[in-house]
Write a protein that binds this DNA or RNA. Structure first.
Lengths: 232, 232
DNA sequence: CTCGAATCTTTGTATGACAATCATATAAGT
DNA sequence: ACTTATATGATTGTCATACAAAGATTCGAG
């Protein structure tokens, strides 16, 4: 008899993981936008957990650079400057072309099929312009790629970077015009993966990230100029 | 009158930062070697701090992947496999060539001079084969480079990776033969930086990391084969 | 020697307490 | 009215406890 299937695989969930998840989510959806202050007691109330758990979750968010501490020790959602965003996208370009090459080399057929499926849902969802759905799909896409690349290290480095620009991506996707570009490149990438053409897939991925970088950096620079004007 | 000089710039040190620092140090020096179990209560005693502080520090180490949690929730010093090490070095190669190019472009003369100084101390210290001193110097070298590269993001991504292989580097440096190779490449790199030749500097850095990768991966693979043999 | 109950260990979580720091409001003096 | 003191409040950092859950260990009964 086979017991493998019965074995309980997931450890009972931890309050601090729940807390972490909730906070990460709140940040990436913009519920807590960049710069928003996070007060421990308020988070405790909002989440119904103790200060202990909130604080441990905050320490992790701090290590992930999703929040930043002021010199008064107050914690707020990290503000990404245009320069930060540029560097994040440059690094992502290196990491994710690396990942997609590994995916082409190592992913099994089920994973490739999964990629195609996500890509198709994309086409369907895009016409309705439902930013939340699109963001979720994009997340799935990246997850699938990182999984299929079979590298713990790449995932560990890439995921926090992805998390840091999650909110920006969501904002950028809700802008008219930017979305279609992304779709075309993703389609090219998935096609290349299906054809097991690593170079082409990597190039499509790089192209996508270069375009995204340009769009987001431009957007942030505009915001920064605006803010500067207001300040004066 | 100028008040800038009087202003207190450093926030009073936090117990959790002290704890984090101590633990990171203990891991990178091998006082707590890979696989060693870390028991909260013991750490409290050893460090003279409360469980609260130890736990918050552990959460950060966890985010940095310096420790790992078993399914029983026990925490131990992360074990780096040969595959992990290979990926870490591949990513470092991308990040640090990027960093050294920025350094050449952006660092001021004082920083270049600092680099040269460190490089010279290296030559002096190497003859005496004092691994602790060498490790400290290498740390300074990387710090200087990352500082001079003027990119928060690059530093934030590169530093944890560096920390993860710190112990391995120390071990590898204490082996005979490996050290001199590193020194030659570093000398080439610093020379190129002084000459403000970004391509040459980047190539020297890449060369250094490729050599280090080969040495460390070989070493880990040997260890892993050994362990496998013992297990059988 | 094996099985199972009792006990010890370790982690997860909550709570309450208190100091230190900063921010804000209030009172006082000129 | 304006500035300075003073009190008051808010927030974070740290500690000490307490207790539940889950595992690991010990030890006695058979």
């Amino acid at each position: 008899m086979e017991y493998e299937d019965l074995r309980i695989v997931e450890t009972p969930s931890l309050v601090r993981d729940y807390t972490l998840e909730k906070l990460r989510n709140a940040i990436s959806t913009g519920l807590y936008p960049p710069g928003a202050r996070l007060v421990e007691r308020e988070l405790c109330e909002a989440l119904g957990v103790s200060r202990t758990s909130v604080r441990e979750a905050l320490r992790q968010l701090q290590s992930e650079n999703l929040v930043e501490v002021s010199k008064r020790r107050n914690i707020s959602v990290a503000v990404i400057t245009s320069k930060d965003a540029e560097d994040i996208y440059l690094i992502r370009e290196m990491l994710e072309t690396m990942a997609i090459r590994r995916f082409v080399a190592l992913a099994d057929d089920a994973e490739v099929k999964q990629l195609v499926k996500i890509q198709k849902s994309f086409g369907k969802t895009a016409s309705k312009s439902a930013p939340r759905q699109l963001a979720a799909l994009a997340g799935e896409l990246y997850n699938t790629i990182l999984e299929g690349a079979r590298s713990r290290v790449i995932s560990e480095v890439a995921r926090p970077l992805l998390a840091r620009v999650n909110y920006l991506r969501a904002v950028s996707m809700s802008e008219p015009g930017r979305m279609e570009g992304g779709l075309v490149e993703w389609e090219a990438m998935v096609d290349a993966v299906v054809a097991r053409d690593a170079d082409k897939a990597a190039e499509a991925m790089a192209q996508h990230l270069r375009n995204a970088r340009a769009a987001i950096v431009a957007r942030l620079e505009a915001d920064e100029n605006q803010a500067e004007k207001v300040a004066s």
